[in-house]
Amino acid sequence: MNRQAKLEVSDEVAIGIQGMNKWFGSFHVLRDIDLTVNRGERIVVCGPSGSGKSTLIRCVNALEEHQSGQIIVDGTELTSDIKNIDKIRSEVGMLFQHFNLFPHLTILENCTLAQIWVRKIPQAQAEETAMHFLTKVKIPEQADKYPGQLSGGQQQRVAIARSLCMRPRIMLFDEPTSALDPEMIKEVLDTMIELAEDGMTMMVVTHEMGFARQVANRVIFMDEGQIVEQNEPEEFFNNPQSDRTKLFLSQILGH
């Protein structure tokens, strides 16, 4: 059951966040966030809606700008310097709730585009890489279709392949399964579990507590823009410390 023992975690820091604050206008969304993610770690972030968990991981690749504190990703500090931001973004893969595939391009073109334009890889080689990862997510036969012709689960797996094609060192997941039908959730989670077993550093915002138990080596609970509790999954689920966490867990595990 507990597969975490197999998965190595190194001492190298992949994401370091210190004293980070963010406001939307005057609304204080993230308050004094301190978080260190080591290479190979798999972090699950959970919490009620509006708790700032999505904003937190969107700050990691600068889709949202933070106003104070420090974020260091893969050894590069996030500043307003656009060169740094583009460099970090090409090293960090991101998955979205609504997949955000490019509807005017075929599946294959979705996967090769960034390789060709950002990494300057020749087209033939980019296509080879794309097919490799499409095979890995088990949909190589859809390569010439358009995203609109695929099911939600397939689209999310294409999105995973698209990110993997950039050979990212870190993957961020922003509620990757919450827009999917129940039967499609599994196929996406299976793909994510495989990724974890390959040693990918992952930060996942999700309500899939089964996934958290099986894959995560740390679960972070957020509420009102702050980290309320973090622990190993067994401890977190079986022995939550704060009242807020207990209430949350009773609500989502209750049914």
Partner: peptide, 21 residues
């Protein structure tokens, strides 16, 4: 949808590339 801008950005495309492609 803003998701298209975000997806283009998150793949590391710069402004000109994400606009054009």
């Amino acid at each position: 949808p803003t998701g298209q801008y975000e997806a283009a950005n998150s793949l590391g495309l710069d402004y000109a590339q994400s606009m054009r492609l």
